[in-house]
């Protein structure tokens, strides 16, 4: 079972990584307005001035 001495720390580092990502999102204000962005993504982008060829 010696593999656990490597596998568990690796798992913990992965967990810490995802936690850091989550905290990053929170600090960036991603969780503050949960309504508007969900609607905003439904609208089309403004049409480009000249039609793409």
């Amino acid at each position: 079972m010696a593999v656990l001495f490597i596998a568990v720390p690796v798992a913990l580092v992965l967990a810490a990584g995802s936690l850091a990502a989550c905290v990053w999102c929170i600090r960036g204000g991603q969780y503050e307005d949960l309504e508007t962005p969900a609607i905003r993504m439904l609208f089309d982008d403004p049409r480009p001035k000249s039609p793409p060829t």
Binding site: A15, C22, V23, I26, G29, Y31
Partner: peptide, 21 residues
């Protein structure tokens, strides 16, 4: 309020990660 909300969410995230493991 914004900072308080962030602080609470961060605490919850840490607690969730730790207690899950």
């Amino acid at each position: 309020e914004r900072l308080e909300n962030r602080r609470r969410l961060t605490d919850i995230a840490v607690a969730a990660a730790v207690s899950g493991n």
